[in-house]
Each structure stands twice: as structure tokens, then as C-alpha cells.
Write a protein that binds this DNA or RNA. Structure first.
Lengths: 353, 353
DNA sequence: ATGAAAGCGCTAACAG
DNA sequence: CTGTTAGCGCTTTCAT
């Protein structure tokens, strides 16, 4: 069995209180005895038992994260930055993943009741009103990532603005018939991105052809932010919209990949026939030359952790709702200026048809 | 403050022992009082304190995972399956990520000493001999994933066999000059994949041109299993090897993506000029039509968890070293049979040059 | 500065 | 079947 504080105390001929002081370098201890105790502790390979410490201190030094496990690039990158930010502190990360949406509440309940953690990071998940209050009542700090709630801290992407920028880019390139492929509207970011998209069109006096040019559905229960959904959506768009829009804003890069696959199969060339802007800037966006809105994922994670730790440590209160801006990364999927001029003409032609 | 077992006991007019029995549905309790206690517990929103339970039971119901955070698709997929397997049990997952390799030992030390967990999953990380013994001495079950150690349980891919199969596929297609781009040889899988590759060539009487056709380096300290490394390696291969090999086995799909990018830039067509086989079958392999060795990642995770839980629960001992086979997924990056015949000819020509 | 003792919230052995 | 008590390993008063 591993050595306990009693073993150290006995061998050092002191009380356990003194050992505790030595370990936690309390100022109320003689430097000599402290050194001696530490030496003995070392010799015995003594390591404080984390759980016992937590129980006595009423402080677990772990933070919990609730993540939907869509194996999406976004979540990995986010977790990575969370982990990195945490590794500088003395907190461990415990992972609760929600595979099926209906388990969300049960998972959150568990986090709430087990009291295994000092704070919670909830990623991309909506929080029912009742729960927000539970967290507050339990005095358990929470910060939402990629989502919003009045009563809870949050850091998210400025989705509306990002979508607006994406659409504006397309408009600036001269496009007039612009479509959008989105995730399911039950997703909060999906909703906002649609709003931003619509806003951009309307502000430029373009008509927002909701019925034919905007595809928001995905299989029920899924967000539709994946390759297959993008593929299916693009197929539908090709089938239902004549002529095809000259440009497309796709709510996520992974969907974009599916869109590209469907386009290729249908002989739709990118960017010649169709300009494409994605959202996220996943690793492979660069590889396929996709123009996209880059999310500052790492910054989000870092910020969320920083805020959570501050809340846990009692400094800092008040509302906290950060929105980080997405950045337009121009690559080849919208064509070059030249290509654009050429295409404008053919666009005009196709509109005349 | 949340209700404790004492609150419930007092309100129910019983001792805390009885409450404990009710909660943990012990058989030694009157069904009537049990129901009454449970009702009261419910009413008080009583939830046992996980840490206190752990301390008293000497059982934490959490398992720790040590993961290198390369944000590699492999790790996400693996964690996902681990998480899924765990969600059926009563174990939580605590995540220790090792960002810099030199922190590996410190992290493992921590897992070992904190005694926060009942078992450990170590992913893709080598374990120094000293540590294996420490784990055993501490009675802390471990299973290694994607790695091997004599004294520890492990589940891994049959890397050697997989590489062998990949190379054999290329050979079967008629290629005679075959190159390989690998990760850094400090990586265990990289080493095995090279062995398998070499074995296949030698078994078919081809010469294994180590010096010019095999590129194993990456930046020091990194495994080199990423897009940039693949890109760089391919550039080097193009520069140093005349003529270019007709086929290439690349040790991972992400590297393959980099290889493809470099090839494209250099005007090397795939599969016409160069046949390509990857390893992993990441999500985007399908998208780019990459022929590759599919790793049964989910099965690995599941298996590792199953084994770990068995070990924790004391049943099952003895050695456990599973190797799962990778499966060849044929797509377009090696060309079709027809294309192959054509290319054989040009290969012959280029060899005559 | 240090030792003793009282928790932290729960489980489990021991009497009844 | 149930109450009492002694831990689990550590922190933290409270005296001294």
C-alpha cells in the first residue's frame, strides 16, 4: 500500500498536522522540520491522496466538460486548447460526452450532483432554463462554449456576423443568386448563420430565395454538420434549383466537402460554375483550397478556461458573454478576380435564360 | 448546501447506515423502510457525494486516459469509442493529455500517485520499463492502445501486417519501384510499418532502396504524422529520386494529403504517374479517393475498455496482447487495372532511361 | 511552531 | 433488519 500522511508523521516523529503543513508549505512551520519531513516524505514516495484532499478541502481541482461527441474537428480542436490552457493550472479535465441528445440532461444532472468538479464547461449544447438555475443554486460555475444563455457565462463565435461576412464576400465578387446550405435549424449556430446570410442579401437588395436556394435540413436529431449531409443537400439543390445559383455559402467546411463531392459528380465546376464559401477553416480546407470563415477555436477554449478559473477562484463576477469574430480566409473556391469577371458574364447570361 | 446522508437519516428517523443500505440497495433492509428512505432522499434531492464514496469504498469509478494531443483524427475516433464503451458502465473518463513528449513521464507519475482512477488507458505512448513495474506494484490496471509492452495489456493494430498488405497491393498491381514515406522511427507504429513494407518488397524479390526511396524523418520530437510532414517528405522525394518511384506507400493518410499537395504542385499526377496507398482511412480519405489501410479504431477502443474493466473487476488476468488487422480499402489513388497496364509500360520506359 | 482532535460524507464491520 | 462506530486520508481549528 502507498504511504499515507500517518506513515510520514510516524517516521518523522511528528504529528500529521505538521506533515500537512510541510506538504502544503504553510508558513507556520519551522524550516528545519519542514525540510526533514519533506525528505522523509520523499524517501517514502509519499504522495497525497487526491480524493482525500478534495474531500477535506471541499475543492476537487478538476473541471468537467460536457461535449457532444460528433467527432467533429471543431470539438477536438476546442478540447485541445482547453486542455492546454488547463495544463498550466492545477486542474484536471474530466470528460462527459453526450452521444445521444436525449442523454444531455441526464449527463448534466450527473455533473451537477456528483460534485466531482469545481466548474463546468458546456460545449455546443443548449442548457434548459431549469438547469441554469440549478447550476447557480449549486454555486457551480459554468461557462458555455459555442452557445448562449442569459444567466450563464459564455464564449461563442459571432456567427451572425461571420455568415454576414461570408455572404458579403460573395456579393462583393459580383454574385447575385446566392444559395446557402445549412445545418439543422435546431442548432443555435445554424440559426444565427442563416440570419447573417439573410441580412447580407437583404442589405444589398438581393432577394432571399428561401424556398429554392436555402437548404437547412438534415436528418432529425443530427445537426447535419457532416460530409454526408452536405453531399445530400447539394444533390437536392442541384435537383430543385434551375439554374443553379452562382455562389453558395455553406455553414460548415465538412459539409462543403460533401458539396464538392456532389458537385464533381454532377459536373459542376468549382469555382467556374459555383463559388463556394465555407465556415470553420478545418485542417482540410486548405488542402482543397476552400475559401472559408476561420473560427478562432483555440482562442475560444483559452478564454473559456480563463474565465471559468476566475469564477472558481471567486474573483470576477457579473455577466460574461464574449463573441469572437470569424475571419475570412480567401483561397481558390471562389475563383480569382479574373475568373470572377468572366463568370459575371456567364452569370448574367444564365439569368437571362 | 446539498443534503447529506445525515440529513436524510434524521428526517427519516433512522441511522445513516440504513440510509446507506437503502441507497446502495443492499439486501439487508426492510423494503418498507427502504421505500420510505428513498422517498425522503428524493424529496431532499439527496445525491451521494462521489468523492466521499470513492474514499470510503477505495474505488473511484473513473478511468484515466493518457493521450498525446496531436489533434489527430485517430485519437478523436479512439476517444469516442472509449467514451461510448464507458458510457454503458459506471465509469467516468478523465483525460490527461501529453502535449510535449517530455511531459509524458510526469503525467504518468501523476496518474499513478493521485490515485484518482481505478484503471488507465495509455494511448499511442511508450511506457518506460520502470513505469510498467510501478503500475503493477501499485495494482493499477493498465491497457496500452496502439502500443506494446511485455508486461502490460495492450491492443494495437497489426502494423507490420498492414504495411505488408499495402505494399503487396502495390506489387500486385505490377509496380517494381516502390517508395515509402513514413513517420519518425521513434514512433512504434512507424517502425513496424517500415518493417512490413520492407518484408513485402523482399519477399517479392524487389530491392528495398532504403537510401533514396524511403523517407522516415520528420522534425525531431514530432511523429511526423501530419500534412506538413507529408508535404515536405514528398518534396524531398521528388528532389532526390530520379526517376520517381511508380508507387508510394505512405504511413498515414494525413501525410498522404501532404504528399498529394506536393505532387500536384510538381505536376506529378495521381494515379497516372504515382500510385498511392495510405494508412488509417481517415474521414477525408474517401473524399480524395485514397486507397488505404483501414484501422478498426472503434473496435480497438471498445476492446481496450472491455479488457480494462475486466481487469479492474478482478476477473481475468494473464497476458493480453491483441492485434487487430487493418483492412485494405481500394479507391482511386492506385488507378484501375486498365490504368495500371498502361502505366506499367511507361514505368518500364522510365526505368530504361 | 506543533500536537490533538474534529470534521469532510460515506461505507462497512459489528453488535444487537 | 437496524443503529453505532470505526475508518478512508487529509485539512484545519484550537489549544499549548
Amino acid at each position: 500500500m502507498a504511504a499515507t500522511i500517518y506513515d510520514v508523521a510516524k517516521k518523522a516523529g511528528v504529528g500529521i498536522g505538521t506533515v500537512s503543513r510541510a506538504i502544503n508549505n504553510s508558513p507556520h512551520i519551522n524550516v528545519g522540520t519542514k525540510a526533514r519531513i519533506l525528505a522523509i516524505a520523499n524517501e517514502l514516495h509519499y504522495q497525497p491522496h487526491a480524493l482525500a484532499q478534495s474531500l477535506a478541502r471541499k475543492k476537487t481541482n478538476t473541471i468537467a466538460s460536457v461535449v457532444p461527441f460528433f467527432t467533429n474537428y471543431f470539438y477536438v480542436e476546442l478540447l485541445k486548447s482547453v486542455q492546454r490552457a488547463l495544463s498550466r493550472s492545477h486542474y484536471d479535465l474530466i470528460l462527459f460526452s453526450v452521444d445521444r441528445m436525449n442523454r444531455r440532461d441526464r449527463t448534466i444532472d450527473r455533473v451537477l450532483s456528483e460534485r466531482r468538479c469545481d466548474g463546468v464547461l458546456i460545449i455546443s449544447l443548449g442548457v434548459m432554463d431549469g438547469y441554469a438555475e440549478k447550476f447557480i443554486a449549486a454555486g457551480l460555475p459554468v461557462v458555455l462554449i459555442d452557445h448562449m444563455h442569459q444567466a450563464l457565462d459564455s464564449v461563442a463565435i459571432a456567427n451572425r456576423e461571420g455568415a454576414f461576412a461570408a455572404a458579403s464576400h460573395l456579393i462583393g465578387l459580383g454574385h447575385r443568386r446566392i444559395g446557402m446550405i445549412n445545418g439543422h435549424l435546431s442548432s443555435y449556430p445554424a440559426k444565427l448563420r442563416l440570419e447573417g446570410f439573410r441580412l447580407a442579401l437583404e442589405m444589398h437588395g438581393l432577394d432571399f430565395d428561401d424556398r429554392d436556394l436555402v437548404i437547412c435540413d438534415a436528418k432529425a436529431g443530427e445537426h447535419g454538420f457532416n460530409e454526408a449531409a452536405g453531399y445530400a443537400a447539394m444533390q437536392r439543390l442541384i435537383a430543385q434549383s434551375h439554374p443553379l445559383p452562382g455562389a453558395l455559402f455553406v455553414a460548415s467546411d465538412v459539409q462543403c466537402l460533401g458539396v464538392m463531392r456532389a458537385a464533381k459528380e454532377a459536373g459542376v465546376r468549382i469555382p467556374q460554375d459555383l463559388a463556394l464559401v465555407g465556415f470553420d477553416d478545418i485542417e482540410f480546407a486548405k488542402f482543397v483550397g476552400l475559401t472559408t470563415m476561420r473560427q478562432p477555436i483555440a482562442a475560444m477554449g483559452r478564454m473559456a478556461v480563463t474565465r471559468l478559473l476566475k469564477r472558481i477562484e471567486g474573483r470576477e463576477n457579473g455577466d460574461f458573454h464574449r463573441e469572437l469574430e470569424a475571419e475570412l480566409i480567401v483561397r481558390e473556391s471562389c475563383g480569382s478576380r479574373q475568373a470572377f469577371h468572366v463568370r459575371t458574364e456567364s452569370d448574367t447570361v444564365s439569368q437571362q435564360v
